[in-house]
Design a protein around this nucleic acid. Sequence first.
DNA 1: GTTTACTGCTTCGAATTCAAATGGTGCGTT
DNA 2: AACGCACCATTTGAATTCGAAGCAGTAAAC
Lengths: 165, 165
Amino acid sequence: MPDSPPSLDSVQLGAYFDLIEVTSLLRHAVEQQLREAGDLSYVQFQLLARLGDSPTGGHRMTDLADGVVYSRSGLTYQAGLLEKAGLVVRAPSPDDERSVTVTITDAGRALLAQVLPGHVEVVSSLLFAPLSRDDVTVLARLLAPVRDHMRSTPPRSAAPRRRSD
Amino acid sequence: MPDSPPSLDSVQLGAYFDLIEVTSLLRHAVEQQLREAGDLSYVQFQLLARLGDSPTGGHRMTDLADGVVYSRSGLTYQAGLLEKAGLVVRAPSPDDERSVTVTITDAGRALLAQVLPGHVEVVSSLLFAPLSRDDVTVLARLLAPVRDHMRSTPPRSAAPRRRSD
DNA sequence: GTTTACTGCTTCGAATTCAAATGGTGCGTT
DNA sequence: AACGCACCATTTGAATTCGAAGCAGTAAAC
């Protein structure tokens, strides 16, 4: 017989559905704000934010793509747009000739600073408004192990297919 | 002075980022499983699941779109695909001539039953594996008020634009 | 040192998404 | 009853997305 019929109890099911719905709604709201405030898509904002966080202001393409959970070809496309807009610069990496290092420009930092307050405002008022300070702490403690677990779980396709394929 | 400079403390920021990352990773994994198990996109699965839950097996287009947080035109497209695949049927609503009622077919229910176990398996092993039973209960209790708050918060565009526009 | 396998990025084509514009239908007002 | 306004769904066109294929550069094996 197959390994224990997988099932989710009603609490799990509700948590799962709510998780999906909450992030969908949040993403829509944020997307709209970013479009209005700086003509940025959510992905573009994520990329700029990640670059802005980096001490050097730069990242390799692949690491950047992994960081925002995005396809490599998609990143190439977005990097092209951002570069055309003068928000980032692409240059061959010093140590490895294959890889490209993307670096945020001053204009990129400026735009980031321009849209950030509104972004924070949306997240605050939509996601954190109904939560107390303690609630947020608890939520963070719940999410961290899930994040680590997911990061360390190879995306199915990467799992070595032993036999029968 | 402007309303209190909005900002997120480090705990909030971490929770927000983890939330985005966790759902992105989860979505990718689920998407892949659904594609393999039944050649369904995530949206299509959500639509079928919602229809399958309905007592009548049917929903109006708009309600369906709102339920899965999706654009109306996008839903028209997906409903067309699902109908072509014989998984749903579209018919004019009995009471309101303008609206269309989408109803799941037996084939749709069958496919849903076919992909569901794998879907549950992915969600279980990826999202719930690192969480105890109590953790999930706490998570559910945190998400519910956020969900309700977001549902009752009109999507910016619907908010009446007072001045300066 | 050459061959072979692997990594990193880009290009290409197909599929999906959304916003804006279109065509009907219901509903309240005049 | 005709009008105006709001709502429902679809069509259309542009933009974005991904996977597969292609093109380097790098590392490993022999």
